[in-house]
Computed example of a mutant assay.
Amino acid sequence: MATKPKGLLDRLKAGETVICAEGYLFEFERRGYLKAGPFAPEVVVEHPELVKGLHREFAHAGSDVVLAFTYYGHRETLRAVGREDELETFNRTALKLAREVADETGTLMAGNICNTNCYNADDPQALDRCRQIFKEQTEWAVSEGADFMVAETFHVLGEALLALECVKQYGNGLPAVVTFSVSRNGLWCGNTVEEAMTALEEAGAAVVGLNCGRGPATMLPLMDKVVNKVKVPFAALPVVYRTTEQQPTMHSLISHKGSKAFIVDMDEFLCGRSMVADFGQRCKDLGVQYVGLCCGNAPHFTRTLAETMGRTPPASKYSPDMTKHFTYGTDRWYGNKSL
Rank of each mutant, 00 (worst) to 15 (best):
T3E: 15
P5S: 02
K6S: 06
A21S: 14
L25S: 14
L25M: 15
F28W: 13
F39Q: 09
E42C: 01
P48V: 06
L50F: 08
G53Y: 06
R56A: 13
A59K: 02
A61C: 03
S63H: 02
V65M: 09
V65E: 10
Y72A: 13
H74D: 00
R79V: 01
G82N: 07
E84Q: 10
L87E: 00
N91T: 00
R92D: 04
T93V: 03
A98F: 05
G111A: 05
D123G: 00
D123K: 06
R131W: 10
Q132V: 02
F134N: 01
G145C: 07
M149H: 04
H155S: 12
E159R: 07
A163S: 12
E165M: 08
C166W: 08
V167T: 02
G171N: 07
G173W: 11
G173S: 06
L174G: 04
P175G: 07
V178Y: 09
V182E: 09
R184D: 11
N185M: 10
W188Y: 09
G190Q: 14
E194V: 11
M197I: 08
E201S: 12
E202F: 07
E202R: 12
E202P: 01
V207D: 10
G209C: 04
P216E: 14
P216W: 15
M223K: 05
V227Q: 13
V227K: 12
K229A: 13
K231M: 04
V232W: 06
A236H: 12
Q246E: 15
H256D: 15
S259Y: 13
A261T: 06
D265S: 10
D267A: 15
E268T: 01
S274H: 12
M275N: 14
F279Y: 13
F279A: 03
C283M: 14
K284F: 06
K284H: 08
V288W: 08
G296T: 05
A298Y: 14
P299D: 08
H300R: 06
T302Y: 05
R303K: 12
T304P: 05
P314A: 00
P314N: 03
S316A: 13
T323L: 02
K324G: 04
R332I: 07
G335T: 04
L339F: 14
